[in-house]
Amino acid sequence: VDYIVEYDYDAQHDDELTIRKGDIIKNVKKLEEEGWLEGELNGKRGMFPDNFVKEIK
């Protein structure tokens, strides 16, 4: 499942992704941690907030 970024987010920890509006995040999975998703961007896998992105259908 792929998501498109709607709002910029700067990573706060090493396991998070810095994302920018218009980025496409690939292979996204829901995490047990409420409010977070995990996906791949530019060869890096990491977490990001689910309210900054929208699923591409």
Rank of each mutant, 00 (worst) to 15 (best):
V1M: 08
V1R: 10
D2M: 15
D2S: 14
Y3M: 06
Y3D: 00
Y3F: 06
I4F: 10
I4G: 08
V5T: 11
E6G: 04
E6D: 04
E6Q: 11
E6N: 06
E6V: 15
Y7I: 09
Y7F: 07
Y7L: 14
D8N: 13
A11Y: 02
Q12W: 07
Q12K: 11
Q12F: 07
H13K: 13
H13S: 13
H13R: 13
D15L: 12
D15K: 14
E16D: 05
E16F: 07
E16G: 07
E16T: 02
E16Y: 09
L17N: 00
L17D: 00
L17H: 05
T18S: 08
I19K: 00
I19F: 15
R20W: 02
K21Q: 10
K21E: 06
K21S: 07
K21L: 06
G22S: 05
D23P: 00
D23H: 10
D23L: 07
D23K: 03
I24G: 02
I24E: 03
I25S: 01
K26M: 12
K26I: 14
K26L: 08
K26Q: 07
K26N: 10
N27I: 04
N27H: 13
N27Q: 09
N27W: 14
V28W: 05
V28R: 01
V28Q: 01
K29N: 08
K29M: 15
K30A: 09
K30V: 12
L31T: 11
E32P: 10
E33R: 14
E33I: 14
E33K: 12
G35I: 03
G35S: 06
W36P: 01
W36N: 02
W36D: 01
W36I: 05
L37N: 04
E38I: 11
E38A: 11
G39H: 00
E40T: 12
E40Y: 11
L41H: 06
L41Q: 03
G43T: 05
G43K: 08
G43D: 06
R45P: 03
G46Q: 01
G46V: 03
G46R: 02
G46D: 00
G46N: 01
M47Q: 07
F48Q: 00
D50W: 15
D50F: 15
N51L: 06
N51E: 13
F52H: 09
F52G: 04
V53I: 04
K54Q: 08
K54V: 10
K54A: 09
E55V: 13
E55W: 01
I56A: 05
I56R: 10
K57Y: 11
